[in-house]
Amino acid sequence: MMFIYFIAGLLAASCFMCLYRIGHGPTAPDRSVAIDIFGTVVVGFVCLSAVVMRKDFYINLAIAWALVSFIGTLALSKHLEGRRFDE
């Protein structure tokens, strides 16, 4: 199963590029976008673990991660618009 390592390497490279944009991004919205994309890449990574380990609770982790990442994105975008969270 060598190419599992190849796929994991591609996903890890994606994660590191997102981390570069989170650390280096010139403005705050750049970082928010990178955080959003990072969440979606991690969903793919967790699914890869589900394939390798053959345990179904990894998919539950993926669903929960996708939900939390979506809520976090909405909260960040509201903060960027300059609104409070109760509007």
Binding site: P29, V33, C47, A62, G82
Partner: peptide
């Protein structure tokens, strides 16, 4: 996995245009 795919397909564009609007208004 199918449910998660549907969920990602619905939420990802929504998050993207919320972020685009937020970025413009910021």
């Amino acid at each position: 996995a199918g449910l998660c795919a549907v969920f990602v397909l619905i939420t990802s564009p929504t998050g993207a245009h919320a972020l685009a609007r937020g970025a413009y208004l910021s």
